[in-house]
């Protein structure tokens, strides 16, 4: 690929590759922006944006294209919103193989179509070789938030139940395995998926008020997300380590590498904090959905002035699920 910024070649690329892949009426208008219908009365608009940089660009279970769709769709979904439209901005490195770019764009288009959330506007820039890492994609999404829904990180209260929609750490370990060329008995696949269907299933099954917090535990994993919720809500949490689902091969890889799956990223998992009386209904609703078949109840919100997230270990011990400042640093003296 050799396409100077703003040149004819880029315009051609956009027209041919992107427009064809994402084809939809709004994008087809070909104007500087997309004109979209107003939301239904009473609904509010939610907007979220996410820049995607991932190395490697292709990994088992997905690539940067599908990830760019899922990441932003999930940000809207965990706000309780129904995702409606996406925008996409591509930063391409000069010399990146066109065939690979096409794979990414096709995968992104497929993810957008599967999610039912069209990419209605976009932009492409090419940077000099060495000034990028192949492909960066920034996506922005707009969703409609029904009046009765208001999940928020500060709404967890003592007694509430913490649920996860499935196994923890798949995406983080899949990426790591490819990046470090680690071979495992069977391939570890990213869980990259759009979660809004799962969220709708949850809202269909229980009163909106009972859904206190929804989050997708991406970077920093379950541990970091739970700490964020605890701090925002001014409460503590008690989590049963044995109740947190982890794939055996992720577990084994973590054992080898000395990593904790609860700190690994996920791209298709939901954390739901729900009112105690609705916990069973919520769990059933999650499990009835294909993306939540391994959903589990992992713990409860407790009163705690320190906002500690405590992990009860299978041996009867307790351990802090700390909020790390960055990469875990050795600390055993």
């Amino acid at each position: 690929m050799n396409h100077g910024a703003g040149g004819r070649a880029t315009a051609q690329l956009v027209a041919e590759l992107f427009a064809r892949a994402f084809d939809n009426p709004w994008l087809g208008q070909g104007d500087d922006g997309a004109v979209l219908p107003a939301p239904a009365p009473g609904e509010r608009l939610v907007m979220a944006t996410d820049g995607h940089v991932v190395s490697p660009l292709f990994f088992p279970g997905g690539d940067i294209g599908s990830l760019a769709v899922h990441g932003t769709v999930n940000d809207l979904a965990v706000m309780g919103a129904r995702p409606l439209y996406l925008s996409a901005s591509f930063i391409l490195e000069e010399g990146y193989p066109l065939a690979d770019l096409k794979r990414i764009v096709d995968s992104m288009a497929a993810a957008s179509r599967a999610a039912g959330v069209p990419v209605v506007t976009g932009d492409t820039k090419v940077v000099e070789q060495g000034k990028g890492d192949g492909v960066f994609i920034a996506t922005t999404g707009i969703g409609a938030l029904p009046a009765e829904r208001s999940p928020g990180g500060a709404r967890a209260r003592p007694g509430d139940v913490v649920l996860v929609s499935g196994s923890m750490g798949d995406h983080g370990m899949a990426i790591l395995a490819v990046r470090e060329s680690l071979a495992f008995d069977s391939e570890i696949r990213s869980d990259s998926a759009a979660l809004h269907g799962l969220v709708e299933a949850l809202y269909a099954a229980l009163p909106a008020e009972a859904i206190r917090v929804l989050r997708d535990p991406t970077r920093g994993g379950l541990a970091t997300t739970l700490n964020e919720i605890a701090r925002q809500s001014g409460a503590g949490m008690r989590i049963e380590e044995a109740a947190v689902p982890v794939h055996p091969q992720v577990e084994a890889a973590c054992e080898l590498l000395g990593l904790d799956p609860l700190y690994l990223a996920n791209e298709g998992k939901l954390i739901a904090v729900v009112a105690p009386e609705s916990a069973d209904a919520a769990l059933a609703a999650l499990r009835a959905h294909p993306l939540g078949s391994a959903a589990a109840r992992i713990g409860t919100v407790v009163e705690d002035a320190h906002h500690f997230v405590q992990l009860a270990t299978p041996l009867g011990g307790q351990r802090m699920l700390d909020w790390l400042s960055g990469e875990p640093l050795p600390r055993i003296c």
Binding site: E180, S181, A183, A252, E255, L256, L259, P330
Partner: peptide
């Protein structure tokens, strides 16, 4: 040790092997 058969590779690659 279950992880022993992969340890040589891990060390060779330097993955998750911070120096101390």
């Amino acid at each position: 040790e279950q992880a022993a058969w992969r340890m040589a590779d891990l060390l060779a690659a330097g993955t998750r092997c911070p120096p101390t």
